[in-house]
């Protein structure tokens, strides 16, 4: 009986062999039935992508183009199928966005193309595909990743949407700043709002949840930055649009409230080392609207100051805020029509878009910068929990 000598890592070549007839089972167990909250929680980030790629490597090694095509097509269709089925679940969409990107990076990193090999180890360069150029499939995967990203944005928008107006505008994070005596006992902390309303803390907690799930899935840092920038844009646009449509939101104290809330969001960015994500800049129109609520609005100098300060607001938005502005008490005067005319005259040369509201549905174009992995394929082991016993390491 041959000695059962355990093969050392160095003997494996980082490929996975499977029978053609087992491909449906591979797709079912690794994609369709895999639960991100279930066994996937304990996987190394991107493991499904590495497994699929190691299967592609073996089919390439066999020089079997049909097997390569079939696996790639089934993989793409499998991911689309699971996202059709569970596409409103943030964890599922985030999980397959990060695995689709990792699969795309593997196809590049091991393509044999010079530009993608710069960070490869010698061993990794030995693991490059030998027979097929999969550049066209990489393009299809990139198209799929864009679709998944847009789906992720819709999911997080649906979760955030109900929180924004209440958390950013209505709830008084700074108690009493509006001059209204807090009813009954002063609320202990800003996160305890009336039943069912959201506070700024609710929004921050949700941002934390999104961020930790994406980190847990091993999502590329550059992609996390783009998701966060998109989230902040949505928060800023929805908040500003509501401010522009509600007289009760245009007061000095609301300006103070908004500036405080924005500072808390900036604090969150700093905590997560995301100050360079472009997210803060998407809040600029809201920040300027809040400042406009707080600055003096009487003299020529005031008009000059407002025109130079509000470069991220359109003329229509500036005029609207000034028209809606409501003095917080009888000692304060309303904004005079003549002052608003003065502003309009000063801004008449701007080539502003006429629309009043921001496009809260706008999705920034997404990019997937190449992000090679240092993980050595020959060391990857398949956990039994994936029920992939019909696949063997080569």
């Amino acid at each position: 009986r041959p000695l059962n000598i355990p093969r050392k890592e160095k003997d494996f070549q980082g490929m996975l062999e499977y029978k053609k007839e087992d491909e449906p089972k591979l797709i079912k167990n690794l994609i369709l039935d895999l639960k991100p909250r279930g066994v996937a929680v304990n996987l190394i980030p991107g493991l499904p992508a590495y497994i699929l790629f190691m299967c592609v490597r073996h089919a390439d090694y066999l020089n079997d183009d049909q097997k390569v095509r079939s696996l790639l097509t089934s993989t793409i269709n499998g991911i689309k199928k699971i996202l059709k089925k569970r596409g409103d679940d943030f964890e599922t969409v985030s999980f397959w966005l990060s695995n689709t990107c990792r699969f795309l990076h593997c196809l590049k990193q091991y393509s044999g193309e010079e530009g993608f090999m710069k960070h490869n180890s010698t061993r990794q360069n030995e693991h490059c595909l030998t027979n097929f150029d999969l550049a066209e499939y990489r393009q299809v995967l990139s198209d799929l990743a864009i679709q998944i990203y847009q789906q992720l944005v819709r999911v997080l928008e649906n979760i955030l949407q109900p929180m924004i107006v209440s958390g950013m505008l209505e709830h008084e994070t700074i108690q009493g700043v509006s001059g209204v005596k807090p009813t009954g006992l002063r609320k202990r902390t800003s996160s305890i709002a009336d039943e069912g309303t959201y506070t700024l803390d609710s929004i921050v907690r949700q941002l934390n949840t999104f961020h930790s799930i994406m980190c847990q899935h091993g999502t590329d840092p550059e992609l996390i930055k783009q998701v966060v920038k998109q989230m902040f844009y949505i928060i800023g646009a929805v908040t500003l649009n509501n401010l522009l449509l509600r007289k009760d939101m245009c007061s000095w104290s609301k300006g103070m409230q908004i500036r405080y809330n924005v500072s808390q969001l900036e604090e969150w960015l700093r905590d997560k080392n995301l100050m360079n994500s472009g997210a803060k800049e998407t809040l600029e129109p809201l920040i300027q609207a809040a400042q406009l609520l707080q600055v003096k609005k009487k003299t020529d100098e005031d008009a000059e100051a407002i025109c130079s300060m509000c470069n991220a607001l359109t003329t229509a938005q500036i005029v609207k805020v000034l028209n809606l502005y409501t003095p917080v008490n009888e000692f304060e005067e309303r904004v005079l029509v003549s002052f608003i005319r003065n502003i309009q005259m000063r801004l008449r040369d701007r080539k502003d878009a006429p629309q009043l509201l921001m496009d809260a549905k706008h999705i920034f174009p997404v990019t997937f910068p190449f992000n090679p992995s240092s993980l050595a394929l020959e060391t990857i082991q398949i956990p039994g929990s994936l029920s992939l016993g019909f696949i063997s390491r080569v």
Binding site: R69, L72, I76, L129, D133, L134, E136, Y137, V140
Partner: peptide
């Protein structure tokens, strides 16, 4: 220097893959 160039595998678009999938689903009992 590589022995021979890799063969470019022509890929269907996402939409074409979807059609393939639908036809397979139709075939499946």
């Amino acid at each position: 220097q590589r022995a021979r160039p890799r063969v470019l595998l022509k890929a269907p678009t996402l939409a074409e893959m979807e059609e393939m999938n639908l036809s397979e689903d139709d075939d499946s009992p």
